[in-house]
Simulated assay, not measured.
Amino acid sequence: METLALVVPCYNEEKTIPIFYETVEKIKEQIPAQIAYYFVDDGSKDRTLAILRTLTYNNPLGGDVHYISFSRNFGKEAALYAGLQAADGDYIATMDVDLQHPPALLPTMWNFLHEHREYDCVATRRISRTGEPKIRSFFAKLFYQLINDLSDTEIVDGAQDYRLMSRKMADAIVTDSEYNRFSKGIFSWVGFRTKWIPIENVERCAGTSKWSFWKLFRYSIEGILAYTTIPIYISSIIGLIMCGISFLALLFIVIRAMLFGDPVAGWPSLVSIITFLGGLILLCMGVMGLYIAKIYLETKHRQIYIVREER
């Protein structure tokens, strides 16, 4: 019988883990495969690890449960990578533990991959943002539009980490061991034919979201820097344009002084121009600095995560 491994990152999810596990256990009979759970505790500060230990060593439902516990919080990207590395299955599914990724879709996703062998992945994309703050929805749409305009790697609008993939695709993702990870981009970059399933936004079954607006903003910047170098070209073009404008302005002032003997007056405008150009220079340097920072982190070859305990 084929095996299906569920990779489930967890960070302070003591309330959602039992609900998630019971929900999957109720529908697993609809999938003709042996299901194994790979929970990744991303340095939680609550009872997440204790609950995972109970599921693993004293499980009344008898499921095949494994867990990896990090030495500290390394982030969801590291948790996904660790889970994909550890997961041993013919097919791998990545999903959230809060039931915003409905387990009821797993049988449909499984059946599709087995009926359409030309596909290697079934993924979900959110088509509505009901219940989400409007400002967050606005910036989310702006991000997808911006990154697809700038990058050669297409990232589907509303793409989620909830997907079921073949072993071959999972191995390709694990092979990409870059430190600065952006999974949505990696899933797309490795290729393989993907079937997209539209789903509505689902509220968490319990607990609160760990993603603040600032964390999402930083994550979006990570994605843009990881999959396009266009910002560097834009900063270079802006610099070239400003140099041209400055040269023409200088030429105009010199010619005017030679013909009319007109002194250059108006120090407020001069200060404004200098301030503007200074800010522009700092902006361009900041863009280049972000890329250099990414290079710096990659060349350190630090571990993506550190395991404190696993089973």
Rank of each mutant, 00 (worst) to 15 (best):
Y67F: 15
L49H: 12
R47I: 01
S69Q: 08
T54I: 13
E77L: 01
D120G: 15
T130D: 10
R53I: 10
T124Y: 07
M109Q: 04
A86Q: 14
I92G: 07
C121M: 15
P60G: 09
F138T: 14
T94R: 02
L49C: 10
G62Q: 04
H114Q: 13
L113K: 00
D88Y: 09
Y81S: 07
M95Q: 04
P103N: 01
I68Q: 07
H101N: 15
E115G: 15
N148W: 06
L150P: 04
D149G: 13
N73S: 10
I135H: 09
Q85E: 13
Y91W: 14
E118V: 08
N111W: 05
T94A: 13
L49K: 15
P103F: 02
V122Q: 06
V65F: 01
F70H: 03
G89E: 01
P102H: 01
R47V: 07
P60V: 09
A140K: 11
D88V: 15
N148T: 04
I68W: 03
A82Q: 05
F112I: 02
A93C: 15
R136Y: 11
D120R: 08
E115I: 04
A78Y: 00
C121W: 02
Y91C: 10
A79D: 02
S71W: 09
A123Y: 08
F70N: 02
S128D: 09
W110C: 05
L99G: 04
K134C: 07
R126P: 06
Q145L: 11
R47W: 06
R125F: 09
I68F: 06
Q85A: 08
A140D: 08
V97K: 03
W110M: 08
L142C: 14
Q85C: 14
R72D: 12
S151T: 02
H114I: 12
M95T: 07
L52H: 01
L61E: 13
S69W: 02
T94P: 05
L52W: 00
P103C: 09
V97F: 00
K76D: 04
T124S: 13
A82T: 01
R125A: 11
R53T: 12
H66W: 05
Y144G: 03
H116C: 10
H66K: 13
S137F: 03
R126L: 10
D88L: 14
V65I: 15
K141E: 11
I147W: 11
H116Y: 13
T94K: 00
N111V: 01
L105N: 10
F74L: 00
D152P: 05
A140H: 08
T56E: 08
N73A: 11
T48L: 05
T130N: 06
N111C: 05
N59S: 11
E132P: 04
R125T: 08
G62E: 03
L150C: 06
L52E: 00
Y67G: 01
A79H: 02
G75T: 00
Q85Y: 02
